[in-house]
Design a binder for these strands. Structure first.
Lengths: 197, 197
DNA sequence: GTCACGATACCGACTAGTAGGTATGTCGAC
DNA sequence: GTCGACATACCTACTAGTCGGTATCGTGAC
């Protein structure tokens, strides 16, 4: 089982990648630390050298993804384009970045409740900030009159991110649709649904 | 811990309700059979008398929800209304029925991969049929020219059900929004995004 | 009416195995 | 010689599921 491991990649990264893969495939609880270290081609000693616990691995996965997405959203949201175009770009981008980090994303979306309550709270707070930044774009467009305002921005955001969270349960890497195509379609759906009456 | 249990409700139902609650809250794997029987106010003997395994409980929860939703969708889809109205009703209804069975729904959406592969396949097949029935409504509308047809019906369906699956992570029973209001808004978003250009 | 008797409903102690985590050992670089 | 980077051996807690047993119920004979 330790055969096909690329030993050039640092042990820390191999462990995190292995954990992400297995957590995404089977879920957090049913994946044993033993499974992870075998896939990474090391032993438990190595894992507990770099990470303090199984929970720690989960949190690192979560943090890694969210920091990437938060950065990209901030850059787009603060850009110079009109609000409708910024929202379109932000929507398409979160789809693409989710699909490009699908293991991490699936784990993040499905396994938060496996963290101890305090870690969980922090994670939720981070995600909430992300959600609010996105929602603010919609509200900005509503205030400017370019989006219909008879639908709560919060609800629209939840509905949209639901679609994003759900990507992992149907997207196939070898399928016909590229991440960019899906992102474009999702963004179009969102923009269209916000078009004033 | 066996204090607040309504002993009038049959043991089988109490067990299923307890399992659904706990699986929804903590996930399948981290919930022990002991937790379930304590919440239901019985012992393991009772549980293994009515159910063959922990997996069996999960499958019963799944089946219970899907059969309800499948029936309701079929009734609506075969109704006499114009296709746009049938889609609106179906969309709103799945939101309402999901929120009315939120524990079951969360478990179904999050814990399929905990079932043994053969059970899992059957469950996926059932869900796929549901998905396809819904998608057929969209395709019918596209063929009739009342929906735009430059977006794949499959993609639209996935995006919409993503929003439905995600309901459990933000909906609060004591919140301001009723299930009907949310269903109405979701349906409006969907219909709007399908409006011809 | 009551008694025998078989079935159903349920109890709770037990087991075999697995899990996360730790303690200690090895070894090469500097 | 000591420090980082791992390996190996092991501990303890906990889990799903089993099993022998009991209590209650339904029912038919008399």
């Amino acid at each position: 089982m330790t055969a096909r491991v690329d030993m050039a990649i640092p042990v820390q990264e191999r462990l995190l990648a292995a954990a992400s893969r297995l957590f995404a495939e089977r879920g957090f609880a049913p994946t044993s630390v033993q499974d992870i270290v075998e896939l990474a081609g090391v032993t438990k000693g190595a894992m507990y050298h770099y990470y303090s616990s199984k929970d720690d691995l989960l949190q690192q996965i979560y943090t890694r993804l969210l920091s990437v997405q938060q950065e990209r959203l901030a850059e787009i949201a603060e850009g110079p384009l009109p609000v409708a175009e910024r929202l379109r770009e932000a929507a398409a981008d979160v789809v693409v970045s989710t699909l490009e980090n699908l293991d991490d994303a699936m784990v993040s979306f499905r396994s938060i409740h496996m963290l101890p309550p305090d870690r969980q709270a922090q994670v939720r707070a981070d995600r909430r900030r992300y959600h609010e930044r996105f929602r603010a774009l919609i509200e900005e467009g509503q205030a400017a009159g370019v989006f219909r305002d008879d639908l709560a921005a919060d609800l629209v955001t939840h509905q949209f991110f639901g679609g994003v969270h759900h990507l992992g349960s149907w997207y196939r890497v070898d399928g016909a649709l590229t991440p960019q195509a899906i992102g474009g379609s999702f963004a179009e759906l969102l923009l269209r649904s916000l078009q004033p009456i």
